[in-house]
Design a protein around this nucleic acid. Structure first.
Length: 274
DNA sequence: CTTCACGCCTGTCAGC
DNA sequence: TGCTGACAGGCGTGAA
């Protein structure tokens, strides 16, 4: 579900609400979402912890607690996490409830139940493979044009699949990849190494641009995504190709096409993208 | 090491 | 109205 702009929006809207709060009780309605340690140990470790800060890496949310503990949450496809001062929620997908000692609560909800949660000492984050091997994020100092072009030159696979690889770039997902390729004028099924320098340069700029725009609009809400206060994003009103199958391209009027690339639904303009 | 197909889960929606 | 199949913001695994 959420990509980097959505997770960053959740972080920003949630941080002020939860930092400083103490978790008095954890209600585990679906214990199998806990991937480390056991659900029982998770509950014991999290109970009575105070949230010191809320950080993000790629699509991971990191709740730093006292006692040098950190809780990591990955929302996968349909996970949501939100704060409310109202304990009773009209939400049949709530799976875990973190109740604070001030009467408010943090709700983890997830219809497809693919999300994952962990808690561990801060020096054991290496246990989460996907987090430990995460590549540089868009808009970060580590994500340079030189890095991007060197990676592309070495790769045989399709450019879309490369962009979705979190070990290469941390944070892109299906929506923002399709949007980036549109802005760059590059077909998703092109081989990464086939991109000319001008094309990879445009793609690099496009990635940073779509991610920044996604954050500025508070994320993209197609179905499940909500921010840390349960509100929808606005970026769905500003997309060029994703979800616009058979609608005219905003640049040239050609109908947007939908195909499958690397097992993912893929949207592009047959005229603007070559 | 890279690349790719598939499984994980469940809800929703289009088509019959 | 009711059923069936396709599809969905992601990623880990195992095979080639």
């Amino acid at each position: 579900m959420p990509e980097m702009p959505e997770v960053e929006t959740i972080r920003r809207t949630l941080a002020d609400k939860v930092v400083g709060n103490k978790i008095a009780n954890v209600e585990m309605l679906l214990p199998r979402l806990i991937k480390w340690p056991s659900a029982h140990e998770f509950q014991a470790l999290v109970t009575n912890r105070t949230i010191k800060s809320l950080e993000r890496r790629g699509k991971y949310l990191l709740f730093y607690f006292d006692s040098d503990l950190v809780m990591v949450v990955h929302l996968r496809m349909t996970g949501r996490i939100y704060y409310s001062s109202v304990v009773e929620q009209d939400d049949r997908f709530i799976r875990i409830i973190f109740s604070f000692d001030n009467g408010a609560a943090l709700f983890y909800a997830d219809s497809r139940t693919l999300g994952t949660l962990y808690v561990m000492p801060t020096n054991e984050l290496w246990r989460i493979n996907g987090l430990a091997k995460l590549g540089p994020e868009p808009m970060s100092p580590e994500f340079t044009l030189e890095y991007f072009q060197q990676i592309l030159a070495k790769r045989k696979g399709k450019i879309k699949s490369l962009l979705l690889n979190q070990q290469i770039i941390g944070g892109l997902g299906n929506i923002y990849v399709d949007e980036s390729l549109f802005l760059a004028g590059v077909r998703p099924e092109r081989n990464a190494a086939s991109l000319a320098a001008e094309e990879s340069n445009r793609l690099y700029q496009a990635i940073n641009k779509v991610i920044e725009q996604g954050i500025n609009y508070g994320g993209t809400t197609f179905r499940d995504y909500r921010d840390g206060e349960g509100k929808r994003g606005e970026n769905q009103y500003h997309l060029n190709v994703y979800g616009r199958e058979n609608q005219p391209c905003k640049t040239c009027g050609t109908l947007i096409a939908k195909t499958e690339v690397g097992g993912r639904g893929t949207h592009y303009c047959p005229h603007c993208q070559q």
